[in-house]
Simulated scan of single mutants.
Amino acid sequence: MSTTAEHQPWSPPRTASARRTWSAVALGAAWWQLAALGVLYVVCVRTATGQRHENRLHTLALENRGSETGWLRTAFDLVDRLQPHHLVLGVAVVGLVGVVRGRLGAAVRGVVVAAGTLGVTELLKLVLLERPDLLEHSSSANSLPSGHTSAVLGLALGLLVAGPRWLRAPLALAGAAAAGAMGAFVIADGWHRVSDVLASALVGSIVLCLVQVLPHRGERRRGALVRLSLVVPAAAAAALVVVYAGDASLTTSYLLAGTVVALTVLAASLALPREVARRG
């Protein structure tokens, strides 16, 4: 007896045309955000006005360093103890989640997102980008993007990719909280400037879009991916306007930057393809 269409697992279109269209959308989303990252870098790092705004808040953070008490001080001390091997362990967990589920492709994509977000960040920060001395007593050390923020953001995005669809909502909420808190922390404690954290949000979204080009079985949602590529740059731009043009306080600044990072995780959870049922 033949199986009715209602009981057959849904299968995404596998035509060459459909794959090319999806790849073009994913690549376009990544390139658009890369352009936004370039604008962010030029405005905040390559101009004296941008550096002046950045240094004002950075100086405030350095002056207030160590003044936190209670649970906030405990959280700051915990972050201080993070080491590279913790990141390696986190990436391994991402891969293990996909392997345990029997989704090797998801495991690979999750690991690429997690490791790639930090890898691209370090390449940009240490090799490709520089911070010129445009002001008196200005530090020449480049800090854009933030490595700590990208590490936690990459792990959060990697778990979304490798994890099951039914766990995406709690994973997204937990990942948004963790990555957003890290983004806020590195500004509040004087490790990074606001633009460094916003740049990390863009890097994470760029890597996630690029990984969507890799083969996978899933219901691909072009509109959601496009929305991700629009939401993250728009949120970063809005945060910059409030923080720099509005001479925002240090607290407002790190809360806004952390919110942009958290929003990146939430928007990414909605942009990922829906997994389809296995045949058999």
Rank of each mutant, 00 (worst) to 15 (best):
R168D: 09
L160Q: 06
P170F: 15
I187A: 06
G183K: 03
P164I: 11
A184M: 11
L157E: 03
I187W: 01
H148E: 08
A174H: 04
V186C: 07
V152Q: 03
A176V: 03
V161G: 03
W191V: 11
A169G: 13
V161A: 12
A172P: 04
A162V: 02
G154K: 04
T149V: 04
P145L: 12
A176N: 02
S146C: 08
L153S: 03
A181C: 12
G180L: 06
L153W: 06
I187E: 05
A174G: 13
G183C: 10
W191N: 11
D189S: 10
G158Q: 09
G175S: 07
G163E: 12
A151C: 06
D189F: 02
A172E: 01
I187D: 01
G158K: 07
A179I: 03
G180Q: 00
G147V: 06
R168T: 09
G175Q: 02
A179R: 01
A162D: 07
A172F: 00
W191C: 03
L157M: 10
I187L: 03
T149C: 15
H148G: 03
L167Y: 09
A174V: 15
M182V: 15
F185M: 14
A177V: 13
V161T: 13
A178C: 14
L171N: 10
A178P: 00
A172I: 07
L157Y: 08
A178V: 10
D189V: 15
A162Y: 02
A151S: 15
W191S: 11
G175N: 01
G147T: 06
G190Q: 09
T149R: 00
A156E: 06
A177N: 02
R168Q: 13
V161E: 10
W191D: 14
M182T: 14
T149Y: 02
P170K: 14
A188Y: 11
H192E: 09
A188D: 14
F185R: 14
V186E: 08
A178R: 02
W166S: 15
D189N: 15
A151G: 13
A188E: 14
S150R: 08
A156Q: 08
L173F: 12
A174D: 02
H148N: 10
M182H: 07
G147F: 11
D189W: 04
L173E: 04
G158T: 04
P164G: 08
A179V: 08
F185W: 13
A178E: 05
L157A: 08
L171W: 10
A151M: 13
L167F: 13
L155K: 03
P164R: 12
P170I: 14
F185P: 00
L167T: 15
H192G: 10
H148P: 01
D189L: 00
